[in-house]
Amino acid sequence: MAGHKILVIDDSTVIRTMVRDMLPKGNFEVLEAKDGVEGINKIRQERPTIIMLDFLLPRMSGWEVFQQIQGQADLQSIPLVLMSGRKEEVAEKFREPFEYFEFVQKPFDQKGLIDAIKAAMTKAKRRPAADPTVPPTEGAGAAEVQALTIKIAKMQAEMDAMKKQMAQIMAFIKQKMK
């Protein structure tokens, strides 16, 4: 029995097949979707344990699929690996570091794929759980609140990284002054 149900959302049959072939046999049940609409439907129906999402998709882009996932508290906790051959397009929509999902650049090898999946699983565990006492909001307001919440979390991660860098710089300066 497969330990993980992985959904690969990519318009390229080659990529979907490549992911299926690179995963350890017996550990993964691989589901496939060829566009964003099919992908979001399969996410809701199948409840995969891991999602691999191409950024550039027909019918509904990877960005739109990501936004729908983020708009539902029960889907936010699913580990996500975003795939693209052009990281700069992804970086336009998402600021680095990618805090709650992992990015893998196409083409990737088996080690890169496995490392990305492991990192996505680790990042998903660090994500704060949605507060069940706060009622979900509808419409554009909910998307704006979610976007701001994500921005705040990213800013906090950036501040933490800057504090760490500052401490390293101070330690270096103190060492050189001895």
Rank of each mutant, 00 (worst) to 15 (best):
D160R: 11
Q105A: 09
E138A: 13
R47W: 00
G139N: 04
A124C: 02
I152M: 15
D74Y: 07
E96H: 06
D54H: 03
L80V: 09
A161D: 15
T137W: 12
P97T: 03
Q67M: 11
D160I: 04
I69L: 11
P58K: 02
D160A: 13
Q105M: 08
F98N: 05
Q45S: 15
I51N: 00
Q156N: 14
D115C: 06
P135H: 05
A124R: 01
M155S: 13
Y100M: 04
T149K: 12
K87C: 06
I50F: 00
D131M: 05
Q110M: 10
D109F: 02
I51P: 03
M155I: 10
K118N: 13
A116S: 14
Q72K: 13
P107C: 00
K87W: 00
G71Q: 08
L113R: 05
L75W: 04
E64G: 08
A143C: 07
G39W: 00
F94S: 03
K93L: 08
A124Y: 01
A147M: 08
A142K: 12
V134Y: 09
P136V: 08
M159S: 11
K163C: 10
E46V: 10
Q72G: 06
M121F: 01
D74L: 06
F108G: 02
A140G: 07
K163D: 13
L57Q: 00
E138V: 12
R95H: 12
K106H: 02
V145G: 06
M121V: 09
L82E: 01
Y100D: 13
V65S: 08
V65Q: 07
F98V: 08
K106C: 05
K163P: 03
D131Q: 07
K87Y: 05
A142Q: 14
K106V: 03
A73G: 10
M162K: 13
I40T: 03
K106E: 05
Q156T: 14
L53N: 04
K164F: 11
A129T: 10
L148C: 07
F55M: 06
V81F: 01
A140I: 15
V145H: 07
V81R: 01
I40N: 01
Q68S: 10
L56E: 15
R47K: 13
L75F: 01
Q68A: 12
T133V: 10
F66E: 11
